[in-house]
Computed example of a mutant assay.
Amino acid sequence: MIDISIEGQNGERRVLEVPEDMGLNLMEVLKAYEYDIQATCGGMALCATCHIEVLEGGEKLGEINDNEMATLDTLPDADRNSRLACQLRPDAAMNGLVIRLKCNN
């Protein structure tokens, strides 16, 4: 298990215990914790309904693939810290990651 923190609108952080060996992506983990993520495209990096901002630990994440970059480029509020949760697979390197959900702002 690894810890990933979700920062809410008020700045409070909730730590989630995330399994790294179940083959889930971060979007699926967030849905399992009952965060309001539509996941309209089913994790194909097409809809951006799982848009997150990486507040801490971005250097621990893998490179953005072309599909993710193309989708993020369509978002007016995306920046260099933006990622799609559906494209991130939790692993040991992500322990301590801090994110904020952008998809339901």
Rank of each mutant, 00 (worst) to 15 (best):
M1I: 11
M1A: 07
M1G: 13
E7Y: 08
E7D: 03
N10I: 08
G11K: 11
E12C: 03
R13Y: 06
V18C: 04
P19E: 01
D21G: 02
D21F: 14
G23Q: 05
L24F: 15
M27H: 04
E28S: 04
E28F: 06
E28Y: 12
V29T: 05
L30C: 12
L30M: 15
K31N: 00
A32C: 06
Y33Q: 08
Y33W: 15
Y35M: 09
I37W: 09
I37N: 02
I37F: 12
Q38S: 09
A39W: 03
T40Y: 13
G42T: 05
G42I: 10
M44S: 10
C47V: 08
A48P: 10
T49E: 01
H51E: 00
I52D: 02
V54T: 03
L55D: 01
E56F: 12
E56P: 05
K60Y: 05
K60V: 05
L61C: 07
E63K: 14
E63M: 13
E63P: 15
N65D: 14
D66Q: 09
N67E: 10
E68M: 07
E68P: 10
M69Q: 15
A70L: 14
D73V: 04
D73M: 07
L75D: 01
L75P: 09
P76A: 00
P76Q: 00
D77Q: 10
A78W: 11
D79M: 08
D79G: 09
D79E: 04
R80H: 15
N81V: 04
N81I: 03
S82D: 04
R83W: 11
A85Q: 06
A85H: 07
C86H: 08
R89T: 13
P90Y: 02
D91K: 13
A92Y: 14
A93V: 04
R100Y: 11
R100L: 05
L101Y: 06
N104E: 11
N104K: 11
N104D: 10
N105D: 09
